[in-house]
Every structure is written in C-alpha cells, then in structure tokens.
Amino acid sequence: MPKNLLSIKNLCASVDGKRILNGVNMEICPGEVHVLMGPNGAGKSTLANVVMGDPRYRVDAGAVFFEGEDITGEKPDTRARRGMFLSFQAPEEIPGITVENFLRAAKAAYSGEDVKLLPFRKELRAKMSELEMEPSYAARYLNVGFSGGEKKKNEILQMAVLNPKLAILDETDSGLDIDAVKTISESVHRYKNETNAVLIITHITRILQRLPADYIHIMSDGRIVRTSDASLIEEISRGGFASVLG
C-alpha cells in the first residue's frame, strides 16, 4: 500500500457564512487518477480551492492531509511548495507580470533553488511548443487578454513546468476546442507517472480518453455521494446525474 498523497477527512467549509462543503472525504494515492463530477454548484471548485488553502473560504470542521501531514491551516504557498497544484476554473488576470517572469519566480519558489534564465527559457519554450502555444505568449502579461482556452493552456503549462506531486484540474477541459482538449490531455498524460496523482474535475469525459481513471467521485450538495470505478462514467453519460444520485 503506497502512502496516501492526499487525504480529506470530513471537510466542512463555508463562504460568507454560507455552508458549501458538508463533510467531504477522499483519499488519493500516488499513481492514481481521480475524477470528480457533479451538477453545477455542487461544490467541486470550492473543494479544490479549500484544499489549496483559498483564504476566502472558512474551514468549519474536518481536515486535509498531504503525505500524512495535516495542512488544514497552511497558507497556499506552503501547500504549493509541498507539491500541490491547482489549475483554476477561472484563472486570474495579472497585468504587469509576464508569463515567463511569473513562472520563473514560481519555479524558484517551488524548487527552492535559483532558476537560471537561459536553461529555464529553453525548457519553457519546449513545454510551450508541446502545448502548441506561440512563444510570444511568454512575454505577455499573465492571462491578460488571453482567450478562455488560452488561459486553460497556460494553467497546464504551469503544471508542466512546476511538476507537482498532485495536480487538481478544475474544469481545465471546458471551453476548449477539440484539438486543444487533445493537446491538454496529452500533456497531462506526459506529466502523469507512478509517483504523482491527478484529480480531474470535469463535466465532459473527452479529457479522460488518454488517461484511464481509477476512481470516479460524484459530488452533490457539498458531499461525495458516490465513488466508483470508471464504469460509472458510462452510466452518467447515459442517464445523467439523476441515475447515479438516486
């Protein structure tokens, strides 16, 4: 049995006094691919953000463990440096910071080492071309004026550069054209190995074509109501959430 990478225990969280997560449990081990599905507003993004330590949410009860350590009260940057990564459903636009400078700063923080400009630039170029991103995007301000799809690619680029132990992808596949979904799916596939894990939040399953899922979780009203193997996806695409929530 490999040691758990992420372990969520009875997590309850609220925002502005409004309860959104009502006791979520989840275990993710190295090497696994988890998929989180559920109707709009179920609390999937909230879970992702709370796990990453978004200060806007309040944890009312429960805990989050990463590699066996309780990280419930930790700041997001500390979590990131542990090897956690979140690809945001709606990434922020930050004028004045270029993609390249940002990623270099992040990489240095992540790895705790100086990141030399030239080798880094080379690596970035390579990763960008894998994602079919124009090199000129590296000099643009972070997400400013990026199309919806470009923002998502930029998130995956960050994942590829930072190489986290656990990547949470919040609807990274939505708003992408067919080719882009394929590109991103391949990128996640390249990243994936025996020691890391991904949690994919999605409404469509095309991203899973190259990435066999080990577990499917269904969330509703801030709770995981069902966990099963990949066959559940079939069921949902045939009968909708109703068929599995019942």
Partner: peptide, 30 residues
C-alpha cells in the same frame, strides 16, 4: 492586493511578501 490574485500567486508557491513585491513591480511596470 486583491485576495484572489494573491491566492493565485501563492498557489504557485510564492510566499505572501514575495507575491506582494511581484505585484508592486508589476504595477510600476505598466
């Protein structure tokens, strides 16, 4: 700075002070 932006930067491993500095320089550079 905006909490969301700070969270975004911190989720990439950059600590709060460094993130603020980054944003300060970003503000100037525009």
């Amino acid at each position: 700075p905006d909490e969301r932006i700070l969270f975004y930067l911190m989720s990439r491993g950059i600590n709060e002070l460094a993130a603020k500095k980054l944003l300060a320089q970003a503000a100037f550079s525009s």
